[in-house]
Design a protein around this nucleic acid. Structure first.
Length: 346
DNA sequence: AAGTCGGGGGC
DNA sequence: GCCCCAGACTT
């Protein structure tokens, strides 16, 4: 039996009942695929339910504000996904009359939709013969065919895409794509897969060569950089504080935060005092400074380790308008801050 | 081609 | 501590 048939028959028995598998509405499929990028199903599922409930159509999503969308996305990470999702919804409503693109080529034009997502939507919703290549597919194919080309190179990308495209059947492209991904997620797992019950064990090159744990090959990623974040938590006017929108390029774009002072090294009380002396928001030196956490909180991201201190500044007046601490929960903030806000309890 | 973008969980 | 996750975008 060819690999396609083995995978699809395995899938018919082992597939999970997931909400986006009960529909071929491209709007819902698109939502699920964006949410699931670099995200495990268990983590993405509640977000999918929340988005479908709050935005049952692309018009509802387009009519929302970006902050509102980011708020619903809060905690999921990779926030450019939410910004692009919202921008694409507005594009579909404004330019396409709310009609979802119905082919790979047009789907690719949507912000945040790359080769994988366009292939997924095109095959699931419109039966287009486009093979998906996600982390699962890389793993299954590299092992079964014994391919050691690093997957995070353009070489590997091209090679595995071509191979998957060769294996997919025009008969059932969507089902094959779902099958190979589900198979990678549940049978051909990253670590300690149970190859004794694997329906592909006969032809699997990696099993034959005892190289399951060596595949797929991936080039090493860089070491995360350490940064030192000092958040200034102002308290004034009986229950007000200051929050700002993060502008610019880096992490957490368009999310909100307390005024941030980034330093080269861990910051002492003395250093913080002198930094606050020349702070634009502070008109006088009449304030009370306390450090919320003696030990820096280390928030670990893929490329940065954020050593974070929360400095509490009680002050009489400020050179800026504040917000009531009661409504900061309505703003989208990074997990690092929502954890603090919950714990601090103002 | 390499770097950037989150957060959670497995081992 | 390191790796992975229904990847895409920027430089």
């Amino acid at each position: 039996m060819i690999i396609n048939n083995i995978l699809t028959s395995w899938y018919s028995v082992n597939k999970r009942d997931l909400p986006w598998r009960r529909t071929t509405n491209p709007y819902f499929i698109w939502l699920s695929e964006i949410i699931l990028q670099q995200t495990k199903i268990e983590q993405g599922l509640p977000y999918y339910e929340a988005f479908v409930t709050k935005y049952p159509s692309v018009f509802d999503l387009a009519n929302a504000s970006e902050s509102e969308v980011l708020k619903l996305w809060q905690g999921l990470g990779y926030y450019s996904r939410a910004r692009n999702l919202h921008a694409s919804a507005k594009y579909i409503v404004a330019e396409l009359d709310g009609v979802f693109p119905n082919n790979y080529k047009d789907l690719l034009k949507l912000k945040g939709v790359g080769d994988y997502t366009a292939s997924a939507i095109a095959s699931f919703c419109f039966d287009e013969v486009c093979a998906v290549v996600d982390g699962n597919v890389y793993r299954v194919l590299s092992r079964y065919f014994g391919i050691d080309t690093p997957i995070n190179t353009s070489q590997g990308n091209k090679e595995f895409k071509a191979l998957a495209q060769k294996l997919i059947s025009p008969k059932n492209p969507g089902e094959f794509n779902q099958a190979i991904m589900e198979f990678g997620a549940r049978q051909c797992k990253p670590s300690n897969p149970d190859c004794t019950v694997c329906p592909l064990q006969d032809g699997c090159m990696a099993l034959q060569k005892n190289s399951i744990s060596d595949l797929p090959v991936k080039l090493k990623s860089l070491k995360p950089k350490t940064k030192h974040f000092n958040f200034i938590v102002f308290i004034f006017n009986e229950g007000e504080t200051i929050i700002e929108k993060r502008e610019g390029k880096g992490i957490w774009q368009n999310l909100y935060q307390f005024p941030l002072i980034e330093t080269e090294t861990s910051t002492s009380f003395d250093t913080m005092h002198s930094l606050l002396e020349k702070h634009e928001l502070i008109p006088s030196s009449n304030y009370d400074l306390t450090l919320y956490n003696e030990e820096a909180i280390v928030h670990k991201l893929s490329h940065q380790h954020l050593h974070t201190k929360f400095w509490i500044v009680a002050i009489d007046s400020l050179a800026s308008k504040g917000v009531s601490v009661d409504i900061i929960k309505d703003y989208p903030v990074p997990v690092l801050l929502s954890n603090f806000i919950e714990e601090f309890n103002f």
